[in-house]
């Protein structure tokens, strides 16, 4: 093994040890050093040169980025997550012929799906989904995210929240917590339109708070327009759209004139 690879491996061992100690500051510092060291390897993307230790270097680099993704979840940095994930992705797609598959691949892909869901980037969510094979979709980590999205679209929010108990991987908890917040806002938005009023007790259950006080606080902060009276929450219903009484004359005149002009050209 050539000295540079050994050096990177040693650095990586220290990085892993720091993660176990939960010493995230050291981790971040070591990670930047590792990234700089990786630029010296010619076998990595995008050049993919066929050097003798290519497989070893690629595996090492993939391992490093996988840990980087997990680290960014632990320090709760979504931007770093996105960056690291994109750096990692070529190892799963373009280098798949050169490397044995990583056991971390599906958990990390599932994590990314979850992140897109939390950030409400549904279009990207589906684009990523198309890249997965049928067997990948059967994987519990991926399936979890896919089912979440479905329940979310349907409006079956209970299922989204109960899914938190069945997370396939410990790193998922961070995003699930974020998702719970999104879900709460969604429920509040739906309730506003669907109910005339709710008892505070019911609202508490629906918004998944443990005490009435939290509900009142939440309403004050997020929805000051709601009214709380005699143990009931009254929603300010949006004004019904009244049937149009007025004729949009100017628009109609414009349209009719353009029809006339077009017709003249045809005849």
């Amino acid at each position: 093994m050539d000295p540079r690879t050994t050096e990177v491996s040693q650095l990586f061992e220290r990085f892993k040890a720091a993660i176990l100690r939960k010493d995230f500051d050291t981790c971040t510092k070591l990670l930047s050093q590792l990234k700089i060291a990786l630029t010296g390897f010619k076998s990595l993307p995008p050049s993919f040169e066929k050097t003798p230790n290519a497989v070893h270097e690629l595996t090492l680099a993939r391992d490093i980025y996988e840990h980087a993704v997990v680290l960014s979840v632990k320090i709760e940095d979504q931007d770093a997550f996105e960056r690291h994930f994109f750096q990692l992705k070529p190892y799963y797609t373009d280098a798949s012929g050169r490397l044995p598959p990583s056991p971390q691949e599906y958990p990390i892909l599932g994590l990314n799906l979850l992140r897109l869901l939390v950030q409400n980037r549904i279009a990207e969510f589906h684009t990523e989904l198309e890249l997965l094979s049928a067997s990948a979709l059967e994987n519990p980590c991926i399936k979890h995210a896919v089912e979440l999205e479905q329940s979310f679209m349907e409006g079956a929010y209970n299922r989204v929240l109960t899914a938190r108990q069945t997370v396939p991987h410990e790193t998922y908890v961070y995003f699930m917590d974020l998702l719970a917040k999104t879900v709460r806002d969604e429920i509040a938005g739906c309730s506003e339109k669907a109910y005339d009023s709710l008892s505070v007790n019911d609202a508490r259950q629906m918004l998944l708070y443990s005490s009435d006080k939290e509900v009142v606080e939440y309403i004050k902060e997020e929805h000051p327009e709601w009214e709380i009276k005699n143990g009931f929450v009254f929603f300010q219903r949006a004004k019904e759209s009244v049937p149009c009484k007025e004729i949009p004359s100017l628009q109609l005149i414009n349209q009719t004139l353009s029809y006339a002009r077009e017709l003249e050209r045809i005849v």
Partner: peptide, 13 residues
């Protein structure tokens, strides 16, 4: 029932 309720609520919204 709870599922139906939230599904209906979302459809209304």
């Amino acid at each position: 029932i709870a599922d139906a309720e939230s599904i209906v609520a979302k459809a209304i919204r």
